[in-house]
């Protein structure tokens, strides 16, 4: 019978299409997971969301850029889950373009136990972030403070003179470098006994 033959073919064809669609679904789930590292990478490369660059050494400024002084405001936040005080040593610094500059925050553990914290950071305006390069930063690693301990938190960074060639940022004279300290999630943040972190 004609219909039976068609039905047999149809089952095979249907399975083939169904299989291809299933592969598409798997690929899209994969894409969702791939977006996690891709998103981070994208932020780091483009400065998206105010993510500054890390460890990129830039040229010294020449010409007009050499005369530009950028005022950097140092912003500090402590998440409510962390019993620390965290403040910039000075709230604003002025720095020339293309020169490595060292700034300090000061953190103090207000509790009576050792606590490990970790800091997130970003730059505003977001458009300026791709021109900010950090060489060394307390935010690259977790920080552990003993009970009542007070510690300076250094960060050294450049501002790329290229910032003056970008129409979005060429008139910019004020940027903000912001940090937020959280209790660490990787290391048990509150420890009662000493260990080597």
């Amino acid at each position: 019978m004609v219909t039976t033959v068609t039905a047999g073919n149809l089952t095979v064809r249907n399975r083939r299409v169904g299989l291809m669609l299933a592969l598409g679904v798997v690929a899209m789930v994969g894409l969702a997971y791939a977006s996690v590292p891709l998103y981070q990478l994208f932020c780091q490369i483009t400065g998206y969301g105010g993510t500054p660059k890390v460890g990129v050494v830039v040229e010294k400024a020449t010409g007009a850029a050499a005369e530009r002084v950028m005022t950097v405001m140092l912003d500090a936040n402590v998440n409510k889950g962390l019993d620390w005080e965290f403040k910039p040593q000075v709230s604003k610094i002025k720095m020339p373009l293309g020169e490595e500059t060292l700034a300090f925050y000061i953190a103090r553990n207000l509790s009576d136990v050792a606590i490990t914290g970790t800091a997130t950071y970003n730059v505003t305006p977001f458009k300026a972030a791709e021109y900010v390069s950090k060489i060394e930063c307390f935010c690259f690693t977790e920080q552990r403070l003993e009970a009542g301990e007070e510690m300076p938190m250094p960060v050294s960074f450049y501002i790329d003179p290229e910032i003056m060639n970008d129409p979005n940022t060429k008139d910019l004279e004020n940027i903000v470098l912001s940090y937020t300290f959280f209790p660490s999630r990787k290391t048990a943040s509150v420890e009662t006994k000493d260990d080597n972190s």
Partner: peptide
Amino acid sequence: DSRSDEVVKFAAALG
């Protein structure tokens, strides 16, 4: 200001 002078000096020296 709750920062102790000592640490501020230490930080300045590092700078």
